[in-house]
């Protein structure tokens, strides 16, 4: 199979996803603009309820009722606006153009069928002419990820460990040669060594196959290891988006700062580490006006109560905050520039 080795770019514009609840339609994602540069890995971080998984599902136009995409577009190079796709066209896009590794991919395999049988099902449902080639590709991919491909294809879910299932999930997302890949919490419930292995594999496969990758997680550490860009989500908004080293090294948004300070780390001062105060917002508890983060913010202004900050370019990234930057910690460009 000939592969044209240019990764597609993805442009999300004004994306709003609402969920129908007893108290009316509430936005889980509201007016998100996010550009994934071709060939990069973008990490989307946020707490539970930040809208990150909904954003990921929108990339496939796969938001399930009671949710729906109410506005905006997801433009993928060579594919157009995914939000407009319907029916058969949409089904073909999923898997063929956009690969998706589901949250808890460890448990999303059919326990009754061998991996190989599920692979053939996938191939048939996408009208793959040469199923032999598909199996060959799958075996190759699994081998690339450090597994015995033939053995894995003959196995059922329960015969594989958590890390192996995760790799099988990645194989399924890539085997139809999708160029845009979305991974939802790829390392949750894996131990550290397995997590490190999976992250390395994601990075290597991404580079080899010229992909554009989106990694969704609540663990900043996990994306810090693989991602080029980092988008921080809160209350359905992207509050900060920029190169990983810069966002982590000199966070501009107070939420990003709090998030980083809350990571249990091996080095660094124990006394400075602190959990984020308050609790993550849910659909119903989001403030109607002003900045969504203001109630947990350590330095909110009067302005924050009334006006919602608009994402604006500053310090080499996009930030949605009324507070003037830059902050005390200067960007250390010495090593990572």
């Amino acid at each position: 199979m000939e592969r044209h080795l240019t990764a597609p770019g993805v442009r999300i514009r004004g994306l709003t996803v609402v969920y129908n609840t007893p108290s009316g339609e509430l936005p889980a994602v509201s007016g998100v603009d996010l550009t994934l540069a071709p060939g990069t890995i973008t990490g989307v971080v946020g707490e539970s309820g930040s809208g990150k998984s909904t954003l990921a599902l929108s990339m496939l136009n796969a938001v399930q009722p009671p949710g729906r995409i109410s506005a905006g577009s997801v433009e993928i190079d060579g594919l157009g606006d995914v939000v407009r796709l319907r029916g058969e066209e949409l089904r073909r896009t999923r898997g063929r153009k956009v690969g998706y590794v589901f949250q808890a991919a460890q448990n999303s395999l059919n326990p009754l069928k061998t991996i190989g049988a599920q692979l053939l099902d996938l191939g048939r449902s996408h009208d793959v002419g040469d199923l032999r080639a598909l199996v060959r590709d799958a075996r190759e991919l699994l081998g690339r990820m450090g597994m015995d491909g033939a053995r894995v294809l003959d196995s059922r879910q329960h015969e594989l460990s958590g890390g192996m299932r995760q790799r099988v999930g990645i194989m399924f997302a890539l085997v139809l040669d999708a160029r845009v890949v979305v991974l939802d919490e790829p390392t949750t419930a894996l131990d550290m060594i397995t997590q490190a292995t999976i992250l390395r594999i994601i990075r290597e496969v991404h580079d080899e196959r010229a992909l554009t990758t989106l990694v969704i997680t609540h663990d900043v550490g996990a994306v810090a290891e693989v991602a080029d860009d980092l988008a921080v989500m809160y209350g359905g908004r992207v509050v900060e988006h920029g190169p990983v080293a810069e966002v982590l090294g000199a966070p501009e948004h107070p939420y990003t700062r709090g998030l980083i300070r809350a990571i249990p780390r091996l080095s660094g001062d124990l006394g400075l580490a602190r959990a984020l105060p308050g609790r993550p917002p849910t659909l119903g508890t989001l403030p109607a006006a002003g900045c969504v983060f203001r109630e947990r913010c350590e330095s909110s202004l009067d302005l924050c109560r009334t006006a919602e900050p608009v994402p604006a370019a500053r310090a080499g990234r996009t930030v949605a905050c009324h507070l003037p930057g830059p902050h005390a910690v200067p960007v250390k460009r010495k090593e990572y520039a």
């Binding site: 460990s161 060594i193 810090a224 810069e246 982590l248 090294g249 091996l266």
Partner: peptide, 22 residues
């Protein structure tokens, strides 16, 4: 060694060890 490095805040230790097999 398997603990993620927060690039920008940290850099990897020089002697990281990667176990060979699962």
């Amino acid at each position: 060694s398997a603990t993620p490095v927060l690039h920008g805040l940290e850099r990897p230790g020089p002697d990281r060890i990667v176990p060979t097999e699962a």
